[in-house]
């Protein structure tokens, strides 16, 4: 079986198995799995409002998943997407609140600020990895907490001690009256276009440019790339910075689109960590990320309907997602089974 096929078969099998395990957990806990999944389905696609909100949830998932996937292609594990997202969110809202400019300048400026903030946050682990050989996983985890506490302090500072900033000016908002109209006033916003554009741009960079080729080469074999004359250190930093910029944009989706403000957080948003799940499921490819983000984003949003419609705690969906990730990550065992299976066929 070709590599490409296993990259598709393993995630699909994992999703099916994850849903089956979810059904078993529901059955054991005394819930009806059919009613549960029906409620989940209704919660995602039941009416135009839910569809709109599902898309709204998918939007930052696309960017967060892309961020993880992009770094992964260069052999870097960016667990810091969460922190980069938080600083991006703050930067976007800060520009949106403090400045008052025409929309054509204001909105791009706010988006740019978010991307730069995320990029700076990822630059630190990138440089440490490239020049000092420091493990990026640990540094990015630590940077997440620094981001959380620092932005909380900045939010309080900016809003005179209150727990939430003012709303951004309309000129920096991603709100779309068209989407509001057709989705029964959901919070679906224009950010989805930015996210899909980002998917295309990242696909283009990875597949059609020298930069993308070099980044992937470094990911495959650092030493070979070095002998081939590539600047490995620069590529590592560039990869982290682009990844961080994508994560920062994911934060802007929340700041400029969904909420329009930023509030003090007691814990992480979870979107950055879910981005890891999205990327793992999507086999670290931009198209795979679309699949992963659509699935996990809609599952996460649809889960909100489960307590009221079926009496099932919505956390069940987190359990299902975790199990799917386990199965995908353990792909080795699947591949082994698939290979054995196809070998047997050949013998026959």
């Amino acid at each position: 079986m070709s590599n490409r096929m296993t990259n598709i078969v393993v995630p699909v099998l994992a999703v099916i198995l994850g849903l089956i395990v979810g059904a078993i957990i529901m059955a054991i806990s005394g819930y009806n799995p059919v009613v549960g999944y029906q409620a989940l389905w209704e919660g995602i696609l039941g009416d135009s409002y839910n569809i709109g909100e599902s898309v709204r949830t998918i939007t930052p998932y696309l960017l967060a998943g892309l961020a993880v996937a992009f770094a992964f292609r260069t052999g870097l594990f960016n667990i810091g997407v969460e922190g980069q997202l938080i600083v991006g969110w703050f930067a976007a809202v800060w520009i949106g609140v403090v400045f008052d400019l025409p929309m054509i300048v204001h909105l791009p400026l706010a988006l740019l600020a978010a991307a730069i903030a995320g990029a700076i946050w990822a630059f630190v682990p990138g440089v440490l990895k490239a020049y000092l050989g420091v493990n990026e996983v640990v540094v990015t985890i630590m940077m997440n907490y620094v981001a959380l506490h620092v932005t909380n302090a900045l939010i309080k500072n900016m809003s005179d001690g209150s727990d939430s900033t003012e709303r951004i000016h309309e000129s920096a908002s991603l709100k779309s009256s068209f989407f509001e109209q057709i989705t029964d006033i959901s919070r679906m916003h224009n950010g989805i276009f930015i996210a899909l554009l980002a998917v295309f741009v990242i696909w283009f960079i990875l597949q059609k440019t020298t930069l993308g080729y070099e980044l992937k080469a470094v990911g495959f074999n650092r030493h070979a790339s070095e002998y081939a004359g590539m600047n490995v250190k620069k590529n590592i930093v560039v990869s982290m910075v682009i990844s961080g910029a994508l994560a920062g944009l994911a934060g802007a989706m929340e700041g400029l689109g969904t909420f329009g403000y930023v509030a003090v957080k007691s814990g992480f948003t979870g979107i950055g960590f879910d981005g890891i799940a999205v990327s793992v499921l999507g086999a670290n490819s931009p198209l795979g990320v679309v699949f992963g983000a659509t699935l996990f984003g809609s599952l996460k949003y649809g889960a909100g309907n489960m307590p009221s419609a079926a009496g099932i705690p919505e956390e069940l969906v987190s359990v299902i997602i975790a199990i799917i990730i386990f199965f995908v990550a353990s792909g080795y065992i699947f591949k082994l089974l698939l290979e054995k299976f196809s070998k047997k066929k050949e013998v026959k």
Partner: peptide, 26 residues
């Protein structure tokens, strides 16, 4: 299963939080 250890660790964190809250609500 030789899974990526970091991905597995992340999945453990998801699973633990989801499962415990599911059970608390149950």
């Amino acid at each position: 299963f030789r899974a990526d250890q970091i991905v597995t660790g992340v999945a453990i964190n998801f699973l633990a939080l989801g499962l415990t809250l599911f059970l608390v609500k149950k």
